[in-house]
Every structure is written in structure tokens, then in C-alpha cells.
Amino acid sequence: MWDWNEFPEISRTDLRDLKKGLDSAFKDFTRAWGDTIEGFFNPLLKFLVWFEKLLISTPWPVMMLIIAVLVWLGSRSWPLVVGALVSLWLVGYLGMWENTMYTLALISVATLVCIIIGIPFGIWMAKSNRVQAIVTPILDIMQTIPAFVYLIPIMLLLGIGKVPGLIAVCIYAIPPVVRLTNLGIRLVDKDVLEAADAFGASPHQKLWTVQMPLALPNIFAGINQTIMMALAMVVVAALIGVRGLGLEVLKAVNNQYITLGFMNGMAIVAIAIIFDRVSQKYGKRLQKHSEVIHG
């Protein structure tokens, strides 16, 4: 007879054995492959460290000048340049310059990694419905699974440090570039694509002369979202040993320092807003001629 109040559970010992089995299998894997995998990520670590050093060793006025120029090139908007400079100055004045540079380095490198991996994946997804069917649910999982869950295997595998932090950020932040690259390519006007076919464009030529340029505004929107999501992860990354504004926020939480928490939080917000406004303005400029007008 079934007892409808009691769920037919797996027996307690079986469950324990299952968990233990999987855990120890993963630990065995870590022992066997941990060093190899760490070695694999070593160039990434070196690059991140080099970039951090570069940002920190650059004198602050030079850094502010570079940022002002980048903001201008991206947005062509004086108010934004001024806004960026004022907030950076404030951040520095309040003693957060170095941590801001650490965070900036992490976000930049994470975004770069996401773009380098994400765009080819997005292209692949756009070319094959089967790949899309497989990758989409994986992206859903990456975006919804609580970050702490994948922190465990990452830490087991790579310990505590910058690279595991970077990987955690990338797992969470990469889905938008992939999705919007795929979407952007799939949304390209069928008529224009047919014209490329009619002129004898090979698949490769079609990708570079039609699909990528027309998908660019969407890809850019994806990169923008990726940056925002990477910024949202800096506190989590701090949990496994990444320095920067996130770590300060974490300290503030642990010690109930309200002001410290808010100051570093606002610094993160400032970076986010600068990145967002600049990349949106840039994306708009890319789009200027892309709408097709008939008649």
C-alpha cells in the first residue's frame, strides 16, 4: 500500500552513498587533473595580474585622462566625460582608487574572456538549430543557478584566488553575449542575406559582410549586459579571494560597517553606470544606418 503522506524517497543510506560517491569522484578528478587545469589557466592569471599592475602603477592623472578619452570616443558626449571624471575623482578622494583599479581590471579581463568565448559560440548557435537547442538550456542554468553552487567545485579544482574568481564571474556573465550574438545573426533581414547569396557569397563571406555587421548592435547590447552582470558578481568573486571593491563590501557586511559598505557599493555603481552609458551610446551609433527603410 502507498502512504500518500510520505514521499517515496530514496533510502537514507543510498542517498548518502550517492553523494559521497559523486563527491569523492570529483575529488579524485581534482587530484588527478587539478595541476594540469591550473597550468592551463596560468596564462590567464599572468595576464590578469599584469593588467592589474598596469592599472595600479599608472599615475592617477594619466589614468583619468585615458578614461576620459575612452569615454569620449565611445559616447561623444561631454556631460558623460565630465560625469565620469567627477565620479572617479570622488572615488579616489574617498580612498578607493586602488580597489577600483583592481575591480576595473577584473571586469575588463572577464568581459574580454566572455567576448572571445561567447561570440564564436553565438555564431555556432545561429548556424545550427541543434546547437541552439542544446546550448540554450545550459545558458539558462548558468544564469539561474546560485553562484555559490558552482563556487564549490571551482574552489576544489583551483583553490582560492584570482582565476577561480574570474571563472565564477565569467560563468554568470557570459550568457548575454552568446544569446544576443545568436539572436542578432538570426534576425538579419532574409532579403539582404538572399542578395548576398545571389552575388555568390560563400558562407564565410556572408558571415563577415552581412551577418556580423548587421548583428553588431545586438552583439553590443549583449556585451553591455555581460559587463553589468560581471559587475554584479564582484562581491561573490571576493568570497574566493579576488581583491577590489567587492572585498571591501564583504568586509563591511562581516563587520556591519554601514558607511564602508555604501561607499564601495556606490563606487561599483559608478563604474557600472559609466560602462553602461558609454556602451549604449556607442551601440546607438552603430545602429544609425542599420534600419532598412523601404519605399
Partner: peptide
């Protein structure tokens, strides 16, 4: 076929199908 399309044919479309960028 690619060679044929490239060198022997050219096409004009009802909705123009220009490259907007």
C-alpha cells in the same frame, strides 16, 4: 554554383535588399 552566381548572374530585388550598413 558560387562561380556561376559570381560571374554569370546579377540580381535586382523587389525590396532592394541593399546592405543597410
Amino acid at each position: 554554383l558560387l562561380e556561376f552566381r559570381r560571374h554569370k548572374t546579377a540580381m535586382v530585388f523587389q525590396k532592394f535588399a541593399l546592405l543597410p550598413h
